[in-house]
Design a protein around this nucleic acid. Sequence first.
DNA 1: TGCCAGGCCGGGT
DNA 2: ACCCGGCATGGC
Length: 210
Amino acid sequence: MKDKLYLIYRKLFSFFGAQHWWPGDSAFEVMVGAILTQNTNWLNVEKAIDNLKQSKVLKPQRLYNLSKKKLAKLIKPAGYYNIKTDRLKSFLGFFLKSYNGNLKKMSQENTRVLRKGLLSVKGIGPETADSILLYALDKPVFVIDAYTKRILSRHHLIEREATYDETQNLFMRELKGDVQLFNEYHALLVRVGKEFCLKNKPRCEICPLK
DNA sequence: TGCCAGGCCGGGT
DNA sequence: ACCCGGCATGGC
């Protein structure tokens, strides 16, 4: 099993090359993007983030102080804008209250404690929490998403109905706990998922994993 | 033109 | 402990 996961990684990397994730200019932008991209096309998220940048509010305190109505309007292109407004606000409350809106302070926290804290925020589930841990805070946590599960189950490495934790445990048990590896591996899975492993239009014949 | 995207919550079984 | 509807825009 261990060899299989490394083999898949090598195939993906040699086919696609480095993905340079997470796209974004700052760790804070990554955290905001992680919430905005929930079940949403990244291109739409970019529009929302651009709006926040144009309005000069892509900072913890500025964003937190913004009225719900104004925030909702700015992130509208990302979809689910009412829900995501609340989710951003609750996350920012946590970030400001627990870590004074300071990324350094946050990243010094014990990873397990941090994950629990993030999961206690309404609107942050396992994938969003782990994306923040890995891509904003450089913690060696493997991110699981819909593509990852679909690809692994189609290759019979997990059950089709495997849970998030089961899938994550597989990766973290079999792979060396390396931030750069986890970063690149997840990004590559999303890449191959988008191009070859769509829900109703799989292109398995020409997939680089074939 | 309909299908789907880098999920998560809450209410019902 | 699962299961499912709701949430919403924009690209292809």
